[in-house]
Design a binder for these strands. Structure first.
Lengths: 180, 180
DNA sequence: CAAAAACATGTATATATTTACATATATAAA
DNA sequence: TTTATATATGTAAATATATACATGTTTTTG
């Protein structure tokens, strides 16, 4: 195995919220949930088929325009059970936060290394942009205090924003020290 | 492919610091660098062989005790070039921070869900323990201000500590709000 | 109205990663 | 001194993931 098929549960979770096509699920990883997992459509479509074989989901066909048929998937009660079981299990593992930049930084031994400052400014710019994007998402999805209808969705966005805020501040701090 | 073989560069990076065995490299993922990548020995040994075939590393045999031979690997100048090239390249992708707990949280829609509080306290305990562990590592590896001989090593530990500090604070904040 | 972008669904191939299988020596602890 | 643990090195098999290949429709934009 290569990991305990989290994507399976993500798909079940997404379908427990509403009916979705494979395309919708693919796109879901472009927004908030994409901060904490990613998947390509080439992984999603075969998995949808497998989950349907296992009777955890079903689909109905829907016509778009004249010809184009899309498959609207929905979760079955068996699927809901499996999803709930996953949610109920302990989550005792904190997996490594895979971050290529941090890996590179690990091998920069001196503040005088000419690669350091460009690396830092590049990352600062990237994370600053991501932070802006996340804040936009937040104000779009949760415009006011009372709109926190979906707690989980709100919390993970909040988490991502805090993460990026701290990340950029950390980078800025190093930049200040290095370029002084 | 499934990612641009970062492990290759980690191995080159580690070997650029000192000669190591496959076992040493495996163990390296138990300490600081393990916060940002992980690998099993079953992945490391074959890759070492491949890197040696590509002449990026070599090894010498060393005897431990009476019989046990270990392979001490070291980086070649070709390996150093490849490593330096990797470090010099831009790192324009921020990959998703894969976190199973956060995924689960995404699918908890209400503060009244009985699963929520146990999940939060479990994670708080885990991240609190990790934070303590990281702080111990820090005071062991960098006991005083002047001991920051290896900037990269220091910075990524600092980063991990800040990350876990914020993570636990975030969890505590939710726990307070939910259990009120 | 033409062209570009978005919608929609797949398959094939290569590689990365995890878990399990397999074995042996050296050292520390009971 | 025996036993457990750490050191040490591999292979096999299964699964996950990424990139590329492949195709067609619908909607938006210039």
């Amino acid at each position: 195995m290569a990991q305990r098929n989290q994507l399976k549960y993500i798909i079940l979770g997404l379908l427990s919220e509403k009916k979705l096509t494979g395309y919708d699920i693919t796109k879901a990883f472009d927004s908030d949930i994409g901060e904490f997992w990613s998947a390509n459509h080439s992984q999603i479509y075969p998995l949808l088929k497998r989950l349907e074989d296992d009777a955890l989901i079903t689909h109905e066909l829907e016509l778009v325009g004249e010809k184009l048929e899309k498959k609207l998937y929905s979760i079955t009660s068996a699927g809901k059970t499996v999803l709930r079981e996953w949610l109920s299990e302990p989550t005792p593992e904190i997996s490594a936060t895979k971050d290529e930049f941090i890996l590179k930084l690990y091998f920069i031994h001196s503040a005088d290394d000419p690669l350091l400052l460009p690396m830092l400014t590049e990352q600062h710019q990237l994370h600053q942009a991501k932070l802006t994007h996340l804040k936009n998402q937040m104000s779009r999805k949760f415009p006011d205090e009372t709109s926190q209808n979906n707690l989980g969705h709100f919390l993970i966005l909040q988490h991502a924003i805090q993460r990026e805020t701290r990340y950029t501040a950390w980078l800025q701090d190093i930049i200040d020290k290095v370029s002084r």
